[in-house]
Amino acid sequence: MAYYAKSKGQRVVDWSVHYGLLACYLFFALFPLFWLFKVAVTPTKLLYSEGIRMWPSEMTWTNFTQVMTDTDFPQFFINSAIVSGSTAFISTLIAAAAGYSFSRFHYRGKAVIIVLMLVTQMFPLVMLIAPIFRILTPLGLTDSLLGLVVVYTAFNVPFATFLMQSFFDGIPKDLEEAAMIDGNTRFGALVKIIFPLTLPGIAATLGFVFTAAWSELLFALMLVSSPDAVTFPVGLLTFVSKFSVDFGQMMAAGFLALIPAAIFFFLIQRYLVQGLTAGAVKG
């Protein structure tokens, strides 16, 4: 923009500061994750003697193999994958429908629904722990993955709806109107014309909800007690209190927990900025 007015020397200083600051951010963001990995690949006998060395003198994968073979973590991992995957899929479907209706129709009660959704973002979810526990118990939904999916879907639908709405707002109305003139129903036009165009938005929403469900701890801790339905966060937390000595295995388990969320996030973060930009343009 205004940079061409400057001398070469000034520009060099300018870009050095720019990259220097970004390097600080990178260090702050990545060092804790690097350390997680470093401790996970450190052999137990070197854990304390080389506790603050940047890289251990010997490297090992045994922590990872032990977590996978000697603990319940593979089961927790599968539970978490089922819960997060189903939550992401169902929430995105529901949110896409609601977001589409917000974007394309004017109808009575719409403002009320939007306010309702905003309010749900405000109140402390801890407040819902007790009533939800009481309501789900007679339905047999405590101690089950299905119960977690229902609760997580409800928590994630409001934000996902606003996100989907902003993606639909970015697609011209003329497209489906043209298809409807050609004899399609609105739903037909939605599936055939609009759906392919919102794929990036759907990917962003899926990823966002997946990460949120993958991380949820408090409700998983409250609603589930039997080992078959324990999710990763709860498993890791009980691991901490039970075997507080084995840092290497904990870090290895933690690093494994990070992978699915990180992969999803890498895929979606560009679309997330795009989606929010579309919303911001609309005002």
Binding site: L22, Y25, L26, A29, L30, P32, L33, W35, L36, V39, L47, Y48, G51, I52, M54, T211, W214, S215, L217, F232, P233, L236, L237, V240, F247, M250, M251, G254, A257, L258, A261, A262, F264, F265, F266, Q269
Partner: peptide, 30 residues
């Protein structure tokens, strides 16, 4: 750079907590 600096947001909160609890431990972190 953008993908990497945004990465902490993808880290599950409980894991960030555990990770930072370890980071503050003088025996295993610098």
């Amino acid at each position: 750079i953008q993908s990497l600096v945004f990465l902490p947001w993808a880290v599950p909160a409980f894991l960030s907590g555990l990770n930072w609890a370890w980071m503050f431990n003088p025996v295993i972190s610098p």
